[in-house]
Amino acid sequence: MKIRALLTAAALTAALPALAQENAGTPPAKGTAPATDKKTPPKHQTAKAQVKDSQGKDVGDITLEQTKQGILIKGKLSNLPPGQHAFHIHEVGKCEAPGFTTAGGHFNPTKKAHGLLAPKGKHHGDLPNLYVAKDGTVQFDIFSQNGLTVKSLFDKDGSAVVIHAQEDDYHTDPTGDAGGRIACGVVEKT
């Protein structure tokens, strides 16, 4: 629980100055066009994933929205086992039950080691654990700013979001010792 709180605090601390500066600065002089950053991803590029469990039952939706600083990932899920669960973006847009192995490994185009705490990490698909309440529900907003873009999720074989049976230990390569895959959703353009 302490690691989760520390990771959340670190992510918010890193994101807030960038978000605060997004619209800061002096307005352009009258008659001039605002400066543009050619490396900035397109605004309002979005995607979604309808997540299903291993029996094919709907457990909720996850949305991904591109911002200048990274991707905002939001979700509201239900009918999951209570407790901590690893949550990752996987490299293939296939979710064949019951094991969801068709989703491949973690989305990792930079070929880094797994884990938010790994010295040689992290995968672009590594995300913080989700804490599912006793009633089987979880609602979350996660901000990922490690180079992941909505556009990159739509390579030739797509991508998927996966929820694992156990929590991610944030350092064991390649999966964080997260256990089996209990829910999966193919990432689709919106």
Rank of each mutant, 00 (worst) to 15 (best):
I73R: 01
V187Q: 09
V59G: 08
A9S: 13
L117V: 02
F87E: 03
R181F: 05
G136E: 00
N108Q: 06
A97H: 10
D177W: 05
T101H: 11
Q21L: 14
S144E: 10
N108E: 02
L127M: 12
T67R: 14
A5D: 15
K68G: 00
D141N: 14
K76P: 00
H85M: 06
F100K: 06
L116V: 00
F107H: 04
T137I: 02
I73E: 03
T26V: 05
F100T: 03
G99I: 01
G99E: 13
E91H: 07
T67D: 08
L72T: 13
H90L: 07
A103S: 15
L153S: 05
Q166Y: 08
A5M: 09
K43T: 05
S159L: 05
G115Q: 04
P119Y: 02
K76C: 00
D155G: 15
L19T: 04
D141F: 04
T110L: 14
K43W: 00
Q45M: 15
K122P: 13
H171K: 15
G185V: 03
A29E: 15
V161K: 02
L80Q: 06
T8E: 15
G31S: 12
K111E: 08
G75Q: 03
E167L: 06
K111L: 08
L77C: 07
L148Q: 07
L130A: 01
Y131V: 10
V138P: 04
P34M: 10
D141R: 10
S78A: 14
A103C: 04
H44E: 14
V59S: 08
I62L: 13
S54G: 12
P128N: 10
I3T: 12
Q66A: 11
R4D: 14
